[in-house]
């Protein structure tokens, strides 16, 4: 029995190395990797996963298990990030159909889109799946390894906008905070000291110009840059905002591509 334990550990130690080799050695240009972690998974989880993936047409895959850590690795050669993401969510849905209270945590990526597929990166991905706090599927970005990231505070009453911007900025490597009204925003600016505040003007609590003035009067060393993203198109409001020192003013509906460019310009 001790032998088999050692044997298992041996496989374990080499697992991430194997994965790295497999990913790098694939004959396709891209290769996707999904790490799936479940706390209370059934013993035959990998068989179920295999079953689900086999049912898909034209899908080549490899499944490896890390039994010690209840983690599963799925390799999808020849798949770009969006296809991998879709597979991930399909997996999650099907598994939940089979067993409703299963709560799988998934981290996925496609290489070399997200960077280099080293063993360390594989381990970090698996770790992030295990440590994940929310049930949402997590896309591992290359910037996640880096530490010095610019931070953006997103302030808007509308959760749709907040969600979209948060996903987008996170994928671009910014660190994001959210607030849904004026007073929370002021608190967060003082506490988290973001580099840039992307805010609506129409908020509860305090809003509009008095709100902008308050931001600038807050007790922080470097006042954050303010970019206004709002429905207000009244010329007087726009000019008053610029007079108060706002960096940029974008009206809704907005083009996300243009927003990215303007934000990047603010940071340079």
């Amino acid at each position: 029995m001790p032998n088999s334990a050692t044997l298992q550990r041996g496989i374990q130690e080499n697992l991430y190395q194997h994965i790295e080799e497999w990913v790098k050695g694939t004959k396709h240009d891209v290769c996707g990797v999904i790490f799936l972690y479940t706390e209370n998974g059934p013993a035959n989880l990998d068989a179920q996963v295999r079953g689900i993936l086999e049912a898909q047409p034209d899908l080549s895959f490899e499944v490896w298990t890390d039994d010690e850590n209840n983690t599963l690795a799925v390799i999808l050669p020849g798949r770009t990030l969006d296809a991998v993401h879709f597979e991930g969510l399909l997996l999650k849905q099907r598994l939940q159909d089979i067993k409703a209270d299963l709560d799988p945590r998934i981290t996925l990526a496609s290489f070399p889109e997200q960077g280099e597929a080293t063993e360390a990166v594989m381990k970090q991905m698996a770790e992030s799946a295990r440590r994940s706090l929310s049930g949402d599927i997590h896309i591992f970005t290359r910037e996640e390894a880096k530490t010095a990231r610019s931070s953006i505070l997103i302030v808007d009453n509308d959760p749709t906008i907040r969600e979209f911007l948060q996903i987008r900025f996170k994928m671009q490597g910014y660190e994001t905070y959210e607030a849904n009204d004026g007073l929370t925003a002021l608190n967060l600016i003082e506490k988290m000291k973001p580099d840039l505040v992307l805010t609506e003007l129409n908020l509860y609590g305090i809003d509009g110009l008095p709100y902008i003035h308050h931001i600038q009067k807050l007790n922080v060393n470097k006042s954050p840059k303010i970019v206004v993203l709002t429905e207000q198109k009244v010329e007087q409001t726009i000019s008053q905002c610029f007079q108060s020192g706002v960096e940029d003013y974008i009206t809704k509906p907005f083009s996300p591509v243009e927003l990215d460019a303007r934000i990047r310009r603010c940071f340079n």
């Binding site: 969006d82 969510l89 969600e163």
Partner: peptide, 18 residues
Amino acid sequence: QDYFRFIQSHLHEDSDLP
């Protein structure tokens, strides 16, 4: 929810969205 996050993450790409 997952599908929505999926779409939002990949809107900027060129590929066809399922």
